[in-house]
């Protein structure tokens, strides 16, 4: 089975480090983007199997990136997990509206997030 590629887009260094660790543990290749524009460029370039998107990023918000993804026929099927430190109902609804598959509020449980990713990428149990 080929290795799955996951793009992590977040400008918070420590959080990126923790996500990288979790994804490697699951056997995925990890690409990292520091802002919205970079995220879009890397999605186009690497065609990841999953995108982990922070909402509050420089240049372009996670919402915009997700919306872009959904508007592009070639990328439309890419699953997206939105990460946000803003836990309000309105923001969750907005995430859903732009087509995020899963919406995860920070701080998140690593165990739960790993299980989600595994399910979405159809990976075997560890």
């Amino acid at each position: 089975m080929t290795q799955k590629t996951v793009l992590v887009a977040d400008d918070e260094e420590n959080i990126v480090v923790s996500l990288e660790f979790l994804l490697r543990q699951l056997g995925c290749a990890v690409k990292v983007a520091r802002d919205g524009d970079e995220a879009i460029a890397m999605i186009r370039e690497h065609r990841p199997d999953l995108v982990l998107l922070d909402v509050m990023m420089p240049a372009r918000s996670g919402y915009e990136v997700c919306q872009m993804l959904r508007d592009d026929p070639a990328l439309r099927q890419t699953p997206v997990i939105m990460l946000t430190a803003k836990g309000r109902e309105a923001e969750i609804a907005r995430g859903r509206a732009v087509g995020a598959d899963v919406y995860v509020t920070k701080p998140f449980s690593t165990r739960e997030l790993s299980a989600r990713i595994r399910g979405m990428l159809d990976l075997p149990e560890a």
Binding site: E12, N14, I15, S18, L19, L22, A85, G87, T105, K106, P107, F108, S109, T110
Partner: peptide, 11 residues
Amino acid sequence: LRTPLTSIRAF
């Protein structure tokens, strides 16, 4: 507040 908490909890 959530951002540092996220790192703390994750690690």
